[in-house]
Design a protein around this nucleic acid. Sequence first.
DNA 1: AAATTTGGTTTATAATATAAACTTAATTAA
DNA 2: TTAATTAAGTTTATATTATAAACCAAATTT
Lengths: 93, 93
Amino acid sequence: MKELNPLLHSQLRLAVMSILMNVEEADFVYLKEKTESTAGNLSVQLDKLASAGYISVEKGMSGKRPRTACSITELGRTAFEEYVDSLRSYLNL
Amino acid sequence: MKELNPLLHSQLRLAVMSILMNVEEADFVYLKEKTESTAGNLSVQLDKLASAGYISVEKGMSGKRPRTACSITELGRTAFEEYVDSLRSYLNL
DNA sequence: AAATTTGGTTTATAATATAAACTTAATTAA
DNA sequence: TTAATTAAGTTTATATTATAAACCAAATTT
């Protein structure tokens, strides 16, 4: 049986990746609302995805407030697609 | 976003359930080989699935050797199907 | 009859996820 | 104008989970 990439096999990280697959970019606040996660948890999981090179995180300013914009990288896109493929073999989709 | 049943969102338990979805029953040794897990890990995860009522575990004898036969329950089948549905929304399949 | 294998279970440890507490800066209320 | 509140995060501590190592009992092989 195929391995399921453990970095993607996590509810919150998968949700984030899934969102980023379908959108140009998304900021911290949006991801937090969409996934209904706590800020702390989201922060940690975004770090992990960024460390793996699956997403890029740009910290900037929107007016006077900080804004963290995330987008998926090519590596992340590929990993996500492979993960989906592996899952297919488990779920026979 | 839909919740992913955490009992099913685990590589080994998902693999076991996936196997049991497609077969009348499977014994411990078979599951261990198919999933390439250690006996200890498999034992623990089978217990969890059984405690949740997702599988039934029959401990008997095959000749002189012990044999643990597992099969999926109706509850388990339903849970698996719901899990797959939830995943679809993440993966847009 | 000792050593090894089979089919497991229990328990300890490592990894992971999650939330709680904290930080810094901006905004609003008193 | 300063005290309280909110916003946007990060860090750290804790709870949960997964995994493997150690163990056990019975059968088999040497």
